[in-house]
Design a binder for these strands. Structure first.
Length: 571
RNA sequence: GCCGCCGUAGCUCAGUCGGUAGAGCACACCCAUGGUAAGGGUGGGGUCAGCGGUUCAAAUCCGCUCGGCGGCUCCA
């Protein structure tokens, strides 16, 4: 397709939001307009409305939009001195826009631009399409609440979301993508594959079924083995620790609202929301020599965070989870090298789980809440950048999104259908070594402050499994399958033969199950496929006589007849 | 937490205008003994999320609580 003939998506989508606002104003002349930007795939517009929207309003508004679009309205731009603009917006009672202009004025703007489409006029920087006839594929998707200017102290507006594309075909593709995403929903797959469940009694905490627990343990085992190879030592610290510790670490002050507390004998304890303070206690017990550094302490710690009820989402956002946490204490000179190792380690692990594409971001010093001076921050940020350069990696920057105690690398993976997920993190910490007075003895015989790195590769095993399920659509890699092969006797008469084969495969380390139900062969194959069992082995007269296996591979209808020995070679 | 929507059998869902519940799958039993994505029959299974209210009568209307979903805010 000729690129020039296509309108830049952002322009198109932002223009669609103006039409949405026009339609909403037709329906509610007193509506106050918030903002209406373009977003991925579409746009939204925020409104303050005289009544609450109901889902049935959406098609009505969409119809009005289509009507406007058909009129081939022009987008006309004009500029005004900012004072004139204020007057106009006051007169039209667009209070929210008045606030926006006041902000622009404070920033020193003297002129602002408006766009006029039919009778609709909106304060807007643009750019826009020239005419509504370019809006060929627009669809409203959902309604939600949203805080004005993202501030939860302020009243909520009603936000209408929509999508817009250059062509009907692209809209169809988007709809197909949505269907594909829904099919891969890890919450559904978790239920269908009998991996985990959630119950009213423990919102935000998973119940692991045998098949799910197997996957979970395999992931943990994998990381344990890798840690061992890469010079980590594993530790474990208590789950419930005195509030004193959390006050010392700063978590009490920053995250008290999101912690679970319990009182005992007039002493307050908290369930740990993270592992580091406990880890620091352990490190502080002895005063290591610089010769011992770096010290790499890994901990598969179960942590609890009292997340707000509205943010819980399957395994992706939970209140109880296990991190593949590690804390590395090193000298400033070792920092860069350690970061290099962590990046390599992280990307190696992602590849092992079948994630081929990833993106890295450096999150820098937050504007508001941050400790430590700029020089220290810059040094740490440089160390992160240098490590990336050494590995010839590209990275993006997330300005101001670092932790309050230091900059970090965020690892994102791209899944099979192109969605991005944030998983691992590598954070430099200036805070805890100070607060816990961590030291090592340097070459000079003096105490020195170690640099502390927090790193999690998997992140949380819960979240990682969610992403892996969405990525693979449930076709988990063999090493995570609790049942790699399932024997399906053609009839009950062959159950004995099937059990014999199962025993043999099991003895060779192939995790094998058998379907002894009275279901028909077809039904048993269907069930095996639905459970995403990698290999289905049908056993009947043929197999009993020849001693061979008829193998049906997951997702493939074609079967293969091979000897047991050959089959075992797959593993 | 906030805005909106939702909660009916183990699962997926139907249930009109208020008149105390249905289907398919799953499960149990029986028949059938099958060659690669649902063989047939019979049967059991529900305080309609919970509590309160309105009503002669509530799955249905109202309120509260709990939980889920879509967003917002948050994410050490």
């Amino acid at each position: 397709m000729n690129k020039d003939s296509k309108i830049d998506n952002e322009t198109l989508r932002h223009s669609a939001s103006h039409i949405l606002a026009t339609a909403v104003l037709e329906m509610f002349p007193d509506a106050k307009l918030g903002i209406g930007p373009a977003i991925e795939d579409g746009f939204y517009y925020d409104f303050l409305l005289p009544r609450t929207l109901i889902p049935e309003d959406l098609p009505l508004i969409e119809k009005k939009m289509q009507h406007l679009i058909k009129q081939n309205l022009k987008f006309e731009k004009y500029e005004e001195p900012i004072e004139e603009a204020e007057k106009f917006l006051h007169k039209t009672k667009q209070d929210l826009k008045v606030e926006l202009v006041a902000g622009l004025k404070e920033d020193g703007e003297t002129k602002v631009s408006f766009y006029k489409t039919g009778n609709f006029v909106d304060l807007c920087k643009g750019p826009h399409i020239d005419s509504t006839n370019k809006l060929k594929a627009v669809k409203l998707t959902h309604i939600s609440g949203s805080y004005w200017r993202g501030d939860n102290e302020r009243p909520q507006l009603q936000r209408i979301y929509g999508v817009a594309f250059n062509s009907k075909e692209e809209l169809k593709e988007w709809e197909e993508r949505m269907r594909e995403s829904a099919k891969r929903d890890h919450r559904e797959l978790g239920k269908k594959l009998d991996l985990f469940s959630f119950h009213h009694e423990a919102p935000g905490a998973a119940f692991w079924h045998p098949r799910g627990k197997f996957v979970y343990d395999q992931m943990v085992n994998f990381m344990k083995a890798e840690n061992e190879k890469r010079g980590y030592e594993e530790i474990a610290t208590p789950i419930v620790l005195s509030s004193e510790l959390w006050k010392q670490s700063g978590h009490y002050e920053n995250f008290k609202e999101n912690m679970y507390f319990t009182d005992f004998e007039e002493r307050e304890f908290a369930v740990k929301p993270m592992n580091c303070p406990g880890g620091c206690q352990l490190f502080a017990e002895k005063l290591p020599s610089y010769r011992e550094l770096p010290i790499r302490h890994a901990e598969f710690g179960i942590v609890h965070r009292l997340e707000l009820s509205g943010v819980l989402h399957g395994l992706l956002r939970v209140r109880q989870f296990t991190q593949d946490d590690a804390h590395i204490y090193c000298t400033p000179e070792q920092l860069e090298d350690e970061i290099v190792k962590i990046i390599e380690y992280t990307t190696d692990v992602y590849k092992s789980f079948g994630f081929e594409n990833f993106e890295l971001f450096i999150a820098t010093k937050p504007e508001k809440k941050a400790i430590g001076d700029d020089t220290t921050w810059q040094k740490a940020t440089n160390a992160l950048e240098n490590a990336m350069r050494k590995l010839k990696l590209d990275w993006g920057v997330k300005e101001g999104e670092g932790a309050f105690y230091g900059p970090k690398i965020e690892f994102n993976v791209k899944d099979a259908i192109g969605r991005n997920w944030q998983l691992g993190t590598c954070q430099i910490d200036f805070n805890l070594p100070e607060r816990f007075d961590l030291n090592y003895i340097g070459e000079d015989g003096e105490k020195h402050r170690p640099v502390m790195i927090h790193r999690a590769i998997i992140g949380s095993f819960e979240r990682f499994l969610a992403v892996l399920l969405e990525h693979t659509a449930g076709d988990l890699p063999l090493f995570l399958q609790s049942e790699v092969a399932r024997i399906i006797p053609v009839a009950s008469e062959f159950a004995k033969e099937g059990e014999k084969i199962m025993k043999e495969l099991k003895s060779k380390g192939v995790r094998t199950g058998i379907d002894l139900s009275n279901d028909s062969l077809s039904k048993k194959v269907r069930n095996g496929e639905l459970m995403k069992i990698p290999y289905l082995l049908v056993v009947g007269e043929k197999e009993a006589k020849s001693g061979k296996l008829t193998v049906r591979e997951r997702g493939k209808e074609k079967q293969e007849t091979i000897s047991i020995a050959d089959f075992i070679k797959n593993f």
